[in-house]
């Protein structure tokens, strides 16, 4: 474990709980893409299948349980409890256009052609594009609530910190996973546009609104 990965995991945890609290407190999921949340739930479920078979550490197992439970809870709040506030008119990204190609790629490009490894690879590829429905929704509505932009900033920062973690592990541990690094780069690049808007606007107390 290194500082980059620890701060990255905490940033990820923060993002998930900021969103969960926003929905729970405001009793509304306006401006939030339920499709992205479904994809994140799929990412965690397919990635943490080894939760019961492969014990790494208490931290590792605890975080896996928290990530799965909180993301499933978010999907539940959005599609069941506060369904009336779900903005389906703007959350129209066709996620099958993400899941199918990512599923095919996971079969073709992976480290080992075994079920667990292919599911892990699927999860890594899917996570890199899972935020697209959310970014697409913001581009359609033209703006995002400040709390939602904080959520996105923390979420985008987590994988950027993981990139630093992989640089650290490459030099100090000789650890390198090309699939995770490439997907992590794609994932972080997708946030660049948002990071720019966040730093130039939200940091100065303005609302995040995309240029119409």
């Amino acid at each position: 474990m290194n500082i980059f990965r620890l701060v990255g995991d905490l940033s990820h945890l923060l993002a998930i709980f900021v969103l969960l609290l926003k929905i729970w407190k405001s009793r509304s999921c306006a401006g939030v893409s339920g499709k992205s949340q479904i994809l994140f739930a799929l990412v965690f479920i397919t990635r943490y299948l080894d939760l019961f078979t492969n014990f790494i550490s208490v931290y590792n197992s605890l975080m896996k349980v928290i990530f799965i439970a909180s993301t499933v809870a978010t999907v539940y709040l959005m599609y069941i409890k506060f369904k009336a506030t779900y903005d389906s008119n703007h959350d129209t990204f066709r996620i099958e256009f993400l899941v199918v190609p990512v599923g095919g790629l996971a079969f073709l490009v992976n480290h080992d052609f075994t079920p667990l490894e292919i599911l892990w690879t699927f999860s890594i590829y899917l996570e890199s594009v899972a935020i697209l429905p959310q970014l697409f929704m913001i581009s359609k509505t033209g703006e995002a609530e400040t709390i939602t932009s904080h959520y996105l900033f923390a979420l985008g920062s987590y994988r950027a910190l993981y990139l630093l973690n992989w640089i650290y592990r490459y030099y100090f541990e000789g650890y390198f996973d090309l699939i995770a690094v490439v997907a992590g780069c794609v994932q972080t690049i997708l946030y660049c546009d948002f990071f720019y808007l966040y730093i130039t606007k939200v940091m100065w107390g303005k609302k995040l609104s995309l240029p119409a």
Binding site: R5, H12, N54, I56, N60, D112, W120, Y162, D177, A180
Partner: peptide, 10 residues
């Protein structure tokens, strides 16, 4: 073949 590296990352 692929040496089994334990996936210790989240």
């Amino acid at each position: 073949d692929y040496e089994e590296v334990t996936k210790d990352e989240l």
